[in-house]
Write a protein that binds this DNA or RNA. Structure first.
Length: 591
DNA sequence: GCCGTTTTCGGCCCGACTGTTTTCAGTCG
């Protein structure tokens, strides 16, 4: 496996997984194998770059990374190689590590195939295997048959068509809702719930996990299998069915009796690491935890409700968004879980684009200020902030920009007085202003003065080096009118990575200068990402959750930003738009 | 290889499903 000094977390995780596989083939202690797998998972889910941790000499702060693995990674980042790993890979056909990318092919299968067929080159191993399968060569091997040969061919086909991206959270929710509505049409289905990453509200969802409570599993399974969009049944047992839909997505459904439903919810919600930790704790109490309940001696105690399940293990019920084994179990044991912010706590939106006509730097909204106010009122909001993009620098002179902002202001004033009088909703005059590559703001000071405040953001030159882009952001944010930093990581999920910012420095700056960070609810942004929210919240940095709406129906996307905040352990006190108008006004120093 | 208010040694989460076997290994979550 190719290594270098500058490996990303994804790549380091892959390397550690490869080591685990190699150890498994070489019949090393299975706990050693598990240790490497755990370290790999830990790196994959780390909230900071492993290389940064290495620079700060904090590698062992990652759970599952101890003295030995840390020393190997130290060598990796210093020299670009790990001699010990190279030793482990010796004597193994390197093609096997490519084969392991195929679903259903693990270390043993990959090793057997690559050894038998001499698949040494990682780059061509999968392609060669496909040819062999087509010729019917695989079924002739001992331990393989016609079925497994077909399975391999199918996996290769899927692998080739792998543009297969994770679903956005709203998409996954809609799809899950559709299946659940269908499931509930059967009398055999007593309950049906979305679980897994969907219930934990992760920004993207790989496949959809559902749980069904039923007293008649065969009838419930039969009903589910009649769902019209099923393309292929992958697994079909008495309690678990896996299918692929015509949309290309995988659905896992578990069928349990209602008296076990609490234990099932717990198990299938995950995350994997959360469950492992929970089971370790149970073990110490001489208990054994599974999806059927909690086994005490020979007897399995059943839990219809999840809450009692957690309480039996000596802890408070843990909100699904926190279940990542990032300290939530310890907090639940000490009864110190945060009281997470909820959608109902939100009292207004501060980042909404309108149809006010001018050439903006980016895109306009499509609905009028009046419409937007009406919808905000329906949501029971106390205030609404209009934040169009700044006028285009290339289309207008500085004086024209100032004039446009003045015209827009008088329009907003008009709406403002009528809204306050008729609907008791406050309107705020904001603008989303570009921080240019040199750190200056894209609106002259005289224009900024006309605003209640500016939301600043990066919309270009995303790839500047860490020092440059950090300085750029801090310079832009230092302007007295700049109070909010929008979509701070500037990532687009499945499309563009986060900017390389010195987050600690930004958080310290915000804390010291009372700047607010945005949690942008737009489904392909969800920015700031939850792990960074958690870091910032710990420091006491304040957030605003906004929708960045460009149309009235997008105001309801707020729930996804709230999910990010919850996954970042944020409480109402951390989120400024949970404040009533008068308090918000004084915090933001709005006249 | 990791880890620690019952341990620095001696443990390490738990079960479903498939295919190829004829009691289980491998993979997955």
């Amino acid at each position: 496996m190719k290594t270098s000094k500058n490996m990303t977390n994804q790549q380091v995780a892959k390397l550690l997984k490869t080591v685990a596989a190699a150890y498994e083939i070489k019949k090393q202690n299975r706990f050693k194998v598990a240790a490497y797998q755990k370290a790999a998972a830990s790196v994959e889910h780390a909230s900071s770059e492993v290389k940064d941790l290495w620079e700060e000499d904090r590698l062992t702060s990652l759970p599952g990374v101890g003295k030995n693995i840390a020393a190997h990674l130290d060598e990796l980042f210093k020299t670009g190689k790990v001699k010990h790993f190279e030793q482990i890979f010796k004597g193994l056909p390197q093609g096997m590590f490519s084969l392991m990318d195929l679903s259903g092919v693990g270390p043993k299968t990959a090793h057997k195939l690559s050894r038998q067929f001499k698949l040494k080159a990682p780059a061509t191993a999968v392609k060669k295997l496909a040819q062999l399968a087509q010729k019917g060569k695989i079924q002739q091997l001992e331990g393989f048959g016609k079925e497994s040969e077909q399975d391999i061919l199918r996996s290769i086909k899927e692998f080739a068509g792998r543009g297969k991206q994770r679903m956005s959270l709203p998409y996954a929710q809609t799809l899950a809702r559709k299946i659940i509505d269908f499931l509930k049409q059967s009398a055999a289905v007593l309950e049906a719930e979305p679980l897994g990453s969907l219930r934990r509200q992760t920004p993207t969802v790989g496949d959809i996990d559902l749980a069904v409570a039923t007293k008649d599993p065969p009838a419930a399974v039969k009903h589910f299998l009649s769902f019209p969009q099923i393309k292929k049944i992958t697994d079909q047992g008495k309690k678990k069915v896996t299918v692929n839909l015509t949309t290309g997505h995988q659905i896992d459904v578990r069928f349990h009796s209602p008296d076990e439903f609490g234990a099932l919810l717990q198990h299938f919600t995950g995350s994997k690491n959360h469950n492992i930790r929970l089971r370790q704790i149970a073990q110490k109490k001489k208990l054994s935890v599974s999806e059927y309940g909690i086994k005490k001696k020979a007897k399995t105690l059943k839990f219809p409700q999840e809450k009692e399940f957690y309480q039996f293990l000596g802890m408070d019920w843990i909100p699904p968004e926190l279940r990542e084994d990032r300290g939530e179990i310890e907090a639940a044991q000490k009864h110190q879980l945060p009281h997470l912010v909820q959608l109902a706590d939100i009292k207004g939106d501060l980042h909404v684009h309108t149809d006010f006509q001018f050439k903006t730097s980016h895109d306009l909204g499509i609905d009028s200020m009046k419409t937007l106010v009406r919808i905000a009122k329906q949501l029971n909001y106390q205030y609404l902030g209009f934040a169009d993009h700044n006028p285009s620098l290339s289309s207008y002179s500085p004086q024209q920009i100032i004039d446009i902002i003045k015209t827009r202001k008088s329009k907003i004033e008009e709406i403002k007085s009528s809204s306050e009088k008729n609907m008791k909703i406050r309107v705020i005059n904001l603008l989303e202003v570009d921080i240019r590559p040199d750190g200056s703001l894209a609106v002259p000071d005289k224009g900024l003065e006309e605003l209640d405040l500016a939301i600043v953001a990066i919309h270009s030159s995303f790839k500047q080096p860490k020092k440059t882009i950090t300085q750029r952001v801090l310079t832009g944010l230092a302007h007295p009118k700049a109070k909010i930093f929008a979509h701070p990581a500037s990532r687009k999920i499945n499309h563009r990575p986060a900017i390389d910012l010195d987050w600690e420095k930004l958080f310290d700056f915000c804390l010291k200068n009372q700047k607010i960070l945005e949690i942008n609810s737009w489904p392909d942004r969800l920015d700031l990402p939850d792990t960074l929210v958690r870091q910032a919240v710990k420091k006491g940095v304040k957030f605003v959750i906004t929708t960045d709406s460009h149309a009235f129906d997008q105001l309801k996307l707020m729930t996804y930003g709230v999910a990010v905040a919850r996954r970042g352990w944020a409480e109402p006190k951390d989120i400024i738009n949970t404040l009533p108008w008068l308090k918000l006004k004084s915090i933001l120093k709005i006249e």
